[in-house]
Nucleic acid binder design. Structure first.
Length: 290
DNA sequence: GAGTAATCTAATCAAGG
DNA sequence: CCTTGATTAGATTACTC
């Protein structure tokens, strides 16, 4: 029954990348038929599919991205449409038409994942992690997701956006610590770009010398993240980033109160909840509906 | 209108058959 | 080696204040 994408493939898995999803024939069939109806499925549809297949929504999104890319179904970027191709542009209506078609299927609010509102505590953790590594690998992102209570995908997106913004603003020469929430002063931020071990050994971060494993274990046993612990059983405890993050969690909770990170609220609740997996008829209905 | 989360394309990397 | 899932940069869209 765990016919989901195979995540058991490589045991000594490099955790720098998410393990490659292997779609089953039936899953692919469904993906293809959805794609035939719309190459741009809504977030809701993607999430339905993800839930049904037992894979992350981002895997579904990536599949559609790659598919569009490789079948020439991608809408042209505005650069391309304005830049070169005036001839085929008249044949193929540009992005406006696509947008209209998409809107006809529902408001953007249903097409997009609802905007995540990051708490000051979450932002503060992300910013500190960013200073250590602006391009964290998959394992680190999962650790960060665990620590912040955010989906890994959201962590990933946050790093992408942050990097892009930083680059855009780095035109000058001053790197500003802009993203920290409206709180007055991140006193520690300026010096924080040193190595993880150094950070981890700072007294200010270490509340009480030992302990940390427990916190990590509790986090790792969260049901929505078991896919990771199953895939990467050896990932716990050995990673310095994890140690750092555990301490970060404690620090933030100390500074901003235990409710700051809301560890008891699973991230799934942030998103519009969907019901149990679809039956075959519901699938058909879904496909017809698109 | 600014800030920023989410989405997109295009190019590329890399795992699996 | 080829196919295809994952990642990245950069641009864009859309939500929230």
């Amino acid at each position: 029954m765990e016919d989901q994408a195979d995540v058991g493939g490589c045991s000594t898995a490099k955790t720098s990348r998410r393990q490659k999803t292997v779609w089953q024939a039936k899953q692919k069939e469904v993906l293809l038929s959805v794609f035939a109806k719309t190459p741009y499925p809504s977030f809701r549809t993607r999430q339905e599919l993800a839930r049904e297949f037992g894979v992350p929504e981002s895997s579904i999104r990536v599949w559609f991205q790659n598919r569009r890319n490789r079948t020439g179904m991608s809408r042209k970027t505005s650069k391309q449409t304005t830049a070169g191709s005036s001839h085929e542009a008249s044949q193929q209506p540009p992005e406006k038409l696509v947008a209209r078609v998409q809107q006809a299927r529902g408001p953007p609010s249903e097409r997009r994942r609802p905007r995540t509102r990051l708490s000051p505590a979450q932002i503060s953790m992300l910013v500190q992690a960013f200073e250590i590594s602006p391009s964290p690998d998959y394992a680190t992102r999962v650790q960060l997701a665990l620590s912040t209570g955010l989906p890994e995908d959201t962590v990933h997106i946050w790093f992408q956006n942050r990097k892009a913004r930083q680059k855009g603003r780095a035109g000058g020469s001053t790197a500003k610590g802009e993203d920290l929430p409206a709180s007055p002063g991140p006193e520690r931020a300026p010096g924080a770009s040193c190595c993880i071990e150094q950070e981890a050994s700072r007294d200010s971060l270490l509340t009480s010398g030992s302990a940390g494993g427990q916190c990590a274990e509790a986090l790792m046993s969260r049901p929505e993240l078991t896919f990771f612990t199953e895939a990467y059983p050896e990932s716990s405890n050995s990673c310095p980033v994890q140690l750092f993050l555990e301490q970060l969690v404690r620090t933030v909770e100390e500074e901003q109160g235990p409710a700051a990170l809301d560890p008891d609220v699973p991230w799934e609740q942030i998103e519009p909840t969907l019901e149990a997996p679809l039956t075959e008829e519901e699938y058909q209905a879904l496909l017809d509906d698109i």
